[in-house]
Amino acid sequence: MSRGVFVGIATVDVVHRLERPLRPNEKVTALRQDISAGGPAANAAVVFARLGGDATLVTALGRHPLARFAAEDLARHGVTVRDAAPDVVEPPAVSVIQVIDETGDRQVSSVNAGAFWARYPAQPPGGITDGADVVLVDGHHPDLARAAVRAEAPVVLDGGSWKPVLSDLLPSVDYAVCSSAFPEPESLEVPRVAVTRGPDPIRWWAGPERGEVQVPSVVVRDTLGAGDAFHGAFAYALTTGASFVEALTTGARVAALRCSVVGPRAWLEQL
């Protein structure tokens, strides 16, 4: 069984599905509510596990009831959590998310991991990447990420946005899979780089080689976590011997499926 280690943030996601975006000072009744664990590394680990891999998430959660909820949700989906801050009693980051019913577009607000890690810079658990076939970092817990990229396994960067710690991580990254919001990905000195662009073709380059991967066309119902799904599927494909382009193709297929189904977890049943 392929083993993937995912290093980064775990949140509690509160998702409301709305008919339309809210106007200032407006109150509405949501069409639907979902609550689950979230975060780039956590969601990618869920997908890796669903595809048949052995997924471990290295993060900082603590023992607040909300943190326990997130850990239990991840465990239900086959993810082993290694908590670098098990004794912290403060709540973890909560992401507040609105998804618009007609378009599937989402708006997300979160405090992310910065303040939590600044107050509780726990030491990374020992041997966090032992036996890994692939390691993914999202950069949200810098000390954990710095420890993880020392792995002998291929290292994948979830480049959702620029973070200061990336200056330390990039020399050890083998694959950088970035969103279109990532600044100047062409300048990254990484062996293989890809940029996802929503429904538009994925751009990739590996040294002098360049190309594009087409994204399957679907009726978009919910874009929340689509990039995370892509990263989890990409990482899993690498562990099966897939080439860079083949892994990107797998990621695109899985992300498109995720966009076609309402809700943060329901789509997994079709994977």
Rank of each mutant, 00 (worst) to 15 (best):
M1L: 11
F6P: 01
V7M: 14
G8A: 05
L18P: 13
L22V: 08
L22R: 11
N25K: 13
V28S: 10
V28N: 07
V28F: 05
L31V: 05
I35P: 11
S36Y: 01
A37Y: 04
G39L: 06
N43I: 00
A45G: 10
V46A: 02
V46L: 01
A49F: 00
A49L: 05
R50W: 07
D54Y: 08
D54W: 07
A55D: 01
V58Q: 13
A60M: 15
L61Y: 08
H64N: 15
F69N: 08
E72R: 13
D73T: 08
R76N: 09
V79P: 01
V81C: 04
R82K: 06
P91Q: 14
P92N: 12
I97Q: 09
I97A: 13
V99E: 08
D101T: 02
T103I: 03
D105H: 15
Q107R: 12
R119K: 15
P121V: 02
A122E: 11
P125D: 11
P125K: 12
P125N: 11
D130P: 15
G131S: 13
G139C: 13
P142L: 06
R150N: 10
A151E: 09
A151I: 02
V155N: 11
L157I: 06
L157S: 12
W162G: 06
D168E: 15
L169I: 03
V173K: 10
V173Q: 13
A176F: 12
C178D: 06
S180D: 13
S180L: 06
A181G: 14
F182G: 12
F182I: 06
P183V: 01
P185V: 08
V190H: 10
V190C: 13
P191S: 06
T196N: 10
T196W: 08
G198H: 11
P199H: 12
P201I: 01
W205T: 00
E209V: 02
R210H: 04
R210D: 03
Q214K: 04
V215Y: 08
V218H: 11
V219A: 11
R221S: 09
H231Y: 04
Y236G: 04
A237V: 00
T239L: 04
T239C: 07
G241P: 07
G241N: 03
G241H: 02
A242P: 00
A242K: 04
F244H: 01
V245H: 10
T250S: 02
A252C: 07
A252F: 01
A255L: 01
A255H: 00
A255G: 04
A256T: 00
R258A: 03
C259S: 09
R265W: 01
W267G: 04
L268K: 07
E269R: 15
L271V: 03
L271K: 00
